[in-house]
Design a protein around this nucleic acid. Structure first.
Lengths: 293, 293
DNA sequence: CAATTCCTTTGACTAAAGTCAAAGAACTAT
DNA sequence: ATAGTTCTTTGACTTTAGTCAAAGGAATTG
């Protein structure tokens, strides 16, 4: 990793200070106008309903503390507590109509606050500001995503492949059959490698490397979760796969893809892959690429 | 004011939520590693020294609460309390060497945290991210600045003019004499107008409009505080002055400026002012502009 | 089916954050 | 010089946020 310049650190910290002081803190204040911030946040996080367990992990709260806050909200008539239909240990929390009304009001206030911030700007400046925020958020998210080598049989790996299969099943006119996915043994140990991208603990992307023949590898199942697209994550995955291939002494990488996946093809081209004739006959493939490492 | 689009509000709120959750909160956590957050923040805010009164307004704290926290920090040997030399009601707080050491450590941690955030990005992405943050901050600041009409004799107006005079005294090779400033009566009532730009309660810019002759006005002393430059504030001031001139039935605005103030000249040109021959003989003027409203 | 794990509740605390009002010393304006 | 204002301190509180451990019912696992 190249070292981080002091200028960048200063800019980030200055922005952070300014932003949290001016906006973050104020926003919190608006959120919990009449009730403790903890309760207001909890109500917000409950949204359309959730289990206590989910809330506990999402907000990082103590179980006892959460239990009491939920009871307090129930006492105020804002939420209803019930047992989970399938697992009686879990408790479900749902907003009542009064709770929903409060959420709507929270929302209205937050919107008014945001609108107030933008009001002093011209239309072009608003576009510039929101554009800059979107850019910053995209890059902050990308920076927080880690790409790790996992075993091909790991639950996260299989979960990614299932999600991948569901995604392309919906995209290919002919559908997609899961039997076409690589088996765990094809992407483990000497045979290959499997990478999973994690964002805040959840798998949001994957990519597999498989040995085709001596010196030649194949990339398969490069996939990014719908919510994590347009961040530049596919390129990160590709870079990890290529580095792994190089480390394994492979000098040529091949891959096949489907005509409908035009963005994928564009990305492969942009990353130095060139289209080649079919190197293998494959049900779902109609474009083939390779890159010399 | 044109209405704020819902898309912009959504983007801003989404960014706000993501940012405060991911960075703001964490940063606070790092700041107050071994001591209560309140004390850590107070120490940070004390910096190289401040009065309790200043801290109270800056942090918005209760006087009693602040007094106790300051005493707690003193008890830990981190700050020294003393009376203000000129005003014995005020108490000054200064960090001791131990306090400074703690600040340095706070700083180190915050830097490490910021560096960690940027680490996963390539050099170009870091430039893009910090650029976007700088843009966002600039526009958020601009949005928070209000331009108000004040009396030419108001203390804020005179304070701005004094700062303006000091600024250009340092820039003009021949210096600048304060007697050249407009008098309060020239920019009040029917004779003229005076605008002050405020950022979080402090005056950070000004501009004066003076009636020259029927239908013709003159702009004078358009100034922006050093800390508030490059935000686009001068244009805002100009817009306010022009709107006022229009409201007063003026159809032509004139102004003079000095050869050394090249950015000012560029701005006037960009805002539709055209250079004209001298309309008045004036010590500090060697360029003249006008604009038809 | 017994042991273990999971999830929530309850009791018993603590620390931090903040509020309010009274009082007193120091300055300011008239 | 006096009245009013400003700033800080102190006492006496309250609320919020959070921790820890014990306990019990419900699922899971060997």
């Amino acid at each position: 990793m190249n070292p981080v310049s002091a200028d960048h650190i200063t800019t980030l910290r200055r922005f952070n200070r300014y932003f949290t002081r001016r906006i973050g803190v104020l926003d919190d204040h608006y959120l919990g106008q009449d009730r403790p911030l903890g309760e207001a946040r909890l109500l917000f996080e409950i949204g359309d309903g959730a289990s206590l367990r989910e809330l506990r992990t999402r907000l990082g709260l103590d179980a006892g503390y959460l239990s009491r806050m939920a009871k307090a909200l129930e006492g105020q008539g804002l939420v209803r507590l019930s047992a989970h239909p399938a697992d009686n240990r879990l408790r479900m929390v749902e907003p009542t109509p009064a709770g929903r009304a409060e959420l709507t009001e929270q929302n209205r206030r937050a919107n008014a606050f945001a609108a107030g911030l933008l009001e002093g700007l011209t239309a072009e400046q608003r576009v510039e500001l929101t554009g800059a925020m979107a850019t910053a958020q995209r890059l902050l998210r990308l920076a927080a995503i880690t790409v790790t080598l996992v075993d091909g049989a790991a639950p996260d790996a299989r979960a990614c492949l299932d999600a991948y299969a569901a995604d392309i099943d919906a995209r290919f006119p002919e559908g997609f059959d899961k039997s076409d996915l690589v088996g765990p043994e094809e992407v483990s140990g000497a045979a290959g490698a499997f990478f999973v991208a994690y964002e805040e603990g959840r798998p949001v992307g994957c990519g597999a490397l498989r040995r085709l023949e001596p010196g030649v590898g194949e990339l398969r199942h490069v996939w990014v979760h719908r919510d994590a697209r347009r961040l530049g994550l596919a390129r990160r995955l590709l870079a990890a796969l290529e580095a792994e291939a190089t480390a394994r002494g492979l000098t040529l990488l091949r891959l096949d893809t489907h005509a409908t996946l035009t963005e994928a093809q564009a990305m492969y081209r942009a990353c130095g892959y060139t289209e080649i004739p079919a190197y293998v006959d494959h049900v779902y493939a109609d474009h083939w690429f390779e890159k010399r490492l």
